[in-house]
């Protein structure tokens, strides 16, 4: 039964992904992408990774997709149906590179799983509790991720400062604005 659910979800994801790259309407592509990301969250759920699934929905569907849609709404071209303008060999190259990426991914994943199965280290999917995840994120040492965690926070701070700088109103020296 789980297999059936998996294949249904996977088929839905693939169909949505195909729709994203083939549709000529950018807004519809965004909606399709939402479907893909939500479907992946569903797959995580199937693997009992509830935290990951929740994060996927919160960050990707609820956060990034909303921002993408928001950006699309700000574009005047959003409602236009774009026409294919690229030469045909573009599509050929795209197809070839997509096939290559697929081959590499498929090979590495099967090789990885095969090696784990052979070594008997393949782990059963388990629902990690919030406590475990938190401890792992903030503990130094072999199993800790405190260094990447701090790096990410530095990157986020940089992004925040950058955004503030760009959005800051440059004071006009000629007209004295109200200063509170």
């Amino acid at each position: 039964m789980e297999t059936l659910i998996f294949y249904t979800t996977a088929f839905f994801i693939l169909a949505a992904a195909g729709y994203v790259v083939t549709t000529m309407n950018i807004f519809r592509a965004a909606i399709g992408l939402t479907g893909v990301l939500a479907g992946i969250a569903g797959l995580y759920l199937l693997m009992n990774a509830q935290f990951l699934s929740a994060v996927q929905i919160t960050v990707y569907v609820g956060g990034i997709m909303v921002l993408i849609v928001f950006a699309i709404l700000l574009m005047p071209e959003a409602s236009m149906h774009l026409r294919r303008e690229n030469p045909k060999w573009f599509r050929f190259i795209g197809g070839v590179s997509a096939a290559l990426v697929f081959a590499v991914l498929a090979y590495s994943i099967t090789a990885f799983i095969g090696a784990q199965d052979a070594a008997g280290t393949s782990l059963e999917p388990a629902a990690a509790s919030i406590r475990e995840i938190g401890l792992a994120l903030l503990s130094p040492g072999g199993n800790g991720f405190v260094l990447p965690f701090e790096f990410v926070s530095v990157v986020l701070i940089a992004a925040l400062i950058g955004a503030t700088t760009i959005a800051k109103r440059t004071p006009n020296p000629e007209t004295k604005e109200e200063q509170e």
Partner: peptide, 19 residues
């Protein structure tokens, strides 16, 4: 966490409907 995540999906519907 899940409920907060799903609640934010509703925005997408509003944006899509408006557009």
């Amino acid at each position: 966490l899940f409920i907060l995540g799903i609640a934010s999906v509703g925005v997408l519907g509003i944006l899509a409907g408006g557009w």
